[in-house]
C-alpha cells in the first residue's frame, strides 16, 4: 500500500505517491457520496473524536459527516467550553481522551505545532484539522482533488495563491502540496501579508495582482483573516478589494479556462467579488466543499487501514 503514515499531521511528511493514493481513494468516495445509499463500513466499530480548540462549522461538520458515512461512532468535543477553561494542559486533555480508546482523533488548535505535540502522546491516529498558522492538510488535499478533477491533472499547472498568506495555514499546506506535485506556485498579496523568506521556498512572489494572475490555470483566493490580525496589515477593506480583490477585470489576466477557488468562508466584496464567486463557469467553490467530505473519508479510511494492520501485527507478534 502506498500510504504509510500513522497520522495526518501535515502535507510536509507525505510522499507524492501518498498524496496520489489519498486522491485516488477520495475519487471513489465522491462516487459513493453521490449515490442514494452513502454508507460504507470502512470505519465500522471505530471511534472518532473531533476536538476543536478553535471555532469551526465547516471543517468540523465535514469531518463529522465523513466519519458517519464510513460507519464510525463520532463524538464532537467543543474544547473551548471545556476543561481548557479549567486550566487543564493540552497533554492532560490528550491523555484523558486517550484513555477512552478513540481510533481517530481530529484536532484543530490555535497554536502552530500543537497537533504534533498531541500526536506524540496518544495511541490513535491523529488528523490535523488546522494548527495555528502551520498546516491544514485536508484542505490542501481537497483543493488538489478539485484541481485534478477540473483540470485533468495535478502537475505542470500554474497556480496563484492570493491574499492573506501570512495568517493562512491553507496557503502553507497548498504551497507544499502543489510544489511536491511539480506545479508552479505564485503567491500574490500585499507585502505586509506575505511572510519573510517565501521566495526561498521555490515559489514566485508578486505584489501586483494583475501581474501575478497572468496566464495562470488556477486562482486560489484566501480569506482575509481579520480575527488573526493584531493591527495595521492593510489600510482598509475597500482599498484591499480595489487592489487585491478578485473581480472580472483582474481575472481576465488569467487563462480563459482558469478556475477560481476559495476555502471559505468568503468575505464577499473584500477578497472576492460576489459575481465571480457565483459564476458556475469559473468558480469551483461548491465542488471544494463536496471534495472536502470525500478527501476526509479517504484520509480516515487509509489511516484506519494502517491502524488495523498495526494492531493485527501486534496481536500476532509480528513487527509491523
Amino acid at each position: 500500500m502506498a500510504f504509510r503514515q500513522k497520522h495526518l499531521l501535515g502535507i510536509e511528511p507525505l510522499h507524492p505517491t501518498e498524496i496520489t493514493t489519498i486522491l485516488d481513494v477520495a475519487d471513489s468516495y465522491v462516487d459513493l457520496n453521490r449515490q442514494a445509499n452513502k454508507h460504507s463500513d470502512a470505519l465500522a466499530g471505530m471511534t472518532q473524536i473531533n476536538m476543536f480548540f478553535e471555532n469551526s462549522t465547516r471543517t468540523q461538520s465535514s469531518f463529522e459527516l465523513a466519519g458517519k458515512r464510513l460507519g464510525a461512532d463520532v463524538m464532537n468535543m467543543a474544547m473551548q467550553a471545556s476543561s481548557i477553561k479549567k486550566g487543564e494542559t493540552l497533554i492532560d486533555t490528550a491523555l484523558t481522551l486517550n484513555a477512552m480508546h478513540p481510533d481517530l482523533l481530529v484536532v484543530r488548535h490555535p497554536h502552530s505545532g500543537a497537533v504534533d505535540l498531541l500526536a506524540q502522546k496518544v495511541n490513535c491516529a491523529v488528523l490535523n484539522a488546522g494548527d495555528g498558522r502551520h498546516e491544514h492538510p485536508t484542505q490542501a488535499l481537497l483543493d488538489a482533488l478539485t484541481i485534478r478533477r477540473a483540470k485533468g491533472r495535478l502537475h505542470r499547472l500554474s497556480i496563484a495563491i492570493c491574499g492573506d498568506i501570512a495568517h493562512s495555514r491553507v496557503a502553507r499546506s497548498n504551497l507544499i502540496l502543489l510544489g511536491k506535485m511539480e506545479n508552479r506556485v505564485r503567491l500574490v498579496g500585499p507585502p505586509t501579508l506575505i511572510p519573510a523568506g517565501m521566495n526561498e521556498l521555490g515559489c514566485e512572489v508578486y505584489e501586483d495582482m494583475e501581474e501575478g494572475l497572468k496566464d495562470v490555470d488556477v486562482v486560489m483566493m484566501l480569506r482575509l483573516q481579520k480575527e488573526r490580525m493584531d493591527g495595521g496589515f492593510i489600510p482598509s477593506e475597500r482599498e484591499y478589494f480595489h487592489r487585491y480583490g478578485l473581480d472580472a477585470a483582474k481575472l481576465a489576466h488569467a487563462k480563459d479556462d482558469a478556475i477560481v477557488m476559495h476555502p471559505g468562508p468568503m468575505n464577499r466584496g473584500v477578497e472576492i467579488d460576489g459575481t465571480i464567486a457565483d459564476d458556475i463557469n469559473r468558480s469551483v467553490i461548491q465542488e471544494q466543499v463536496e471534495m472536502g467530505v470525500a478527501v476526509r473519508m479517504a484520509a480516515m479510511d487509509l489511516l484506519a487501514r494502517n491502524l488495523r494492520a498495526e494492531k493485527a501485527a501486534a496481536n500476532t507478534g509480528v513487527m509491523a
Partner: peptide, 15 residues
C-alpha cells in the same frame, strides 16, 4: 527569528 523556517512552521517571528 523571521525567515523561511519561521514562515513554514507558522510561528510568530521577529526580524
Amino acid at each position: 527569528t523571521s525567515g523561511k523556517f519561521a514562515s513554514l512552521r507558522g510561528l510568530p517571528a521577529v526580524s
